[in-house]
């Protein structure tokens, strides 16, 4: 067992990968000045060399494409996009090339690239430094989308992502970096086997979340116990391909569903969960209409007063649960 913060757990994953796998290299902006990425990559360039930890020109598209190309040549590259908003410049290599490569060529080659992207909300950074676009990527067949919400997953799913043969979008949220926990020693896990799991057991309502939304769901569940409400929290972990099974099982048991998400509501990831649950359960399984707690359909405001309303927190989770159970 070792005590880690979410951020230092990620750092230990990077160190493990660079140590154990000579074919791993990291490419992205700010890697030689790691304030860009919190303390998740401190001194990697000094320890492993600037040839393997590559700080780059301001060229998101070419750098991501280069990583895709390097993966096809036998490397295990990790691309870092310190702000997900800038990653939009790299949509072609991600969506047109990496996601479709295996399929277009009959499964004869796989771009085993990991694209790490950071959700960087709050701090009055406004509309273009804050977006959580996981639903876009989860929409695309061929991409695996991973959003760890725990310290252990931050490290272990990063390692799994990099060792996976398929292209993986690994998304971490800076609001999780200070989370602290005791975690097991490193075991390599096959990403294909990773599914949503029950992070809090309960019987009255199912709350589904991923990444930071999963954290506030857990915190909400803890507080709800004081009101004699037993909420079960499912942490999605891997958004695409999605295994809806554990969520269906939980909702069958509780009969109530709240989905919390850090993206927008319309056509968002929360919509997918509600749709799949509705399609897979018999009529009457849900005792009350399900509810989605997500971002309002507006860009992120800059002013801190508006930000406070914009982002859901633990109290919003509690209120939503009470509204459903009413």
């Amino acid at each position: 067992m070792q005590t880690h913060k979410y951020s230092s757990a990620m750092l230990s994953a990077f160190e493990y990968l660079l140590e154990e796998y000579p074919e791993v290299f990291i490419i992205g902006q700010g890697l030689w000045s790691p304030w860009y990425v919190g303390d998740t990559m401190t001194d990697l360039d000094k320890k492993f060399g600037k040839e393997r930890v590559i700080d780059t020109p301001v060229s998101e598209s070419a750098c991501t494409g280069a990583a895709v190309g390097a993966s096809l040549a036998g490397m295990k590259p990790i691309v870092v996009h310190p702000r997900m908003d800038f990653m939009i410049y790299a949509m072609d290599p991600i969506v047109n090339q990496a996601a479709k490569w295996s399929h277009m060529f009959g499964g004869q080659a796989h771009p085993g690239v990991t694209i790490r992207s950071i959700i960087n909300r709050g701090g009055e950074q406004g509309a273009q430094h804050s977006q959580a676009l996981h639903a876009w990527f989860a929409h695309v067949p061929g991409l695996r989308v991973v959003m760890p919400s725990t310290v252990q997953d931050a490290r272990d799913l990063l390692i799994s992502s990099v060792l996976c043969k398929d292209p993986v979008i690994y998304i971490d949220d800076r609001w999780l970096y200070d989370l602290e926990d005791e975690i097991d020693d490193i075991t390599e896990l096959d990403l294909c086997d990773q599914k949503p799991n029950i992070s809090v057991e309960g019987i009255d309502i199912t709350i589904v979340g991923s990444s930071y939304a999963s954290l506030i769901a857990r915190q909400g569940a803890k507080k709800l116990l004081k009101d004699n409400i037993s909420a079960e929290v499912i942490d999605v972990r891997v958004l695409n391909p999605l295994d809806i099974g554990p969520i269906i099982n939980s909702v069958s048991k509780t009969g109530h569903l709240l989905v919390v998400d850090s993206g927008w509501k319309s056509c968002g990831f929360s919509s997918e969960i509600v749709s799949q649950v509705s399609e897979n359960l018999p009529i009457g399984s849900l005792k009350k209409p399900p509810l989605r707690l997500a971002l309002p359909d507006a860009p992120a405001p800059s002013s801190r007063m508006l930000e406070k309303d914009y982002y859901p927190d633990t109290d919003n989770v509690i209120m939503a649960v009470k509204q459903i159970l009413g």
Binding site: A62, G65, V68, G69, A70, L72, A73, M75, D92, Q97
Partner: peptide
């Protein structure tokens, strides 16, 4: 022949990366 795809210029950066890989290897 690593692959051809029809998004104009879509594979240019991939070729750069495959060449970077040759250096690393």
């Amino acid at each position: 022949f690593f692959g051809s795809t029809p998004i104009v210029a879509g594979t240019a950066s991939l070729a750069v990366g495959a060449a970077m890989a040759a250096n690393l290897q």
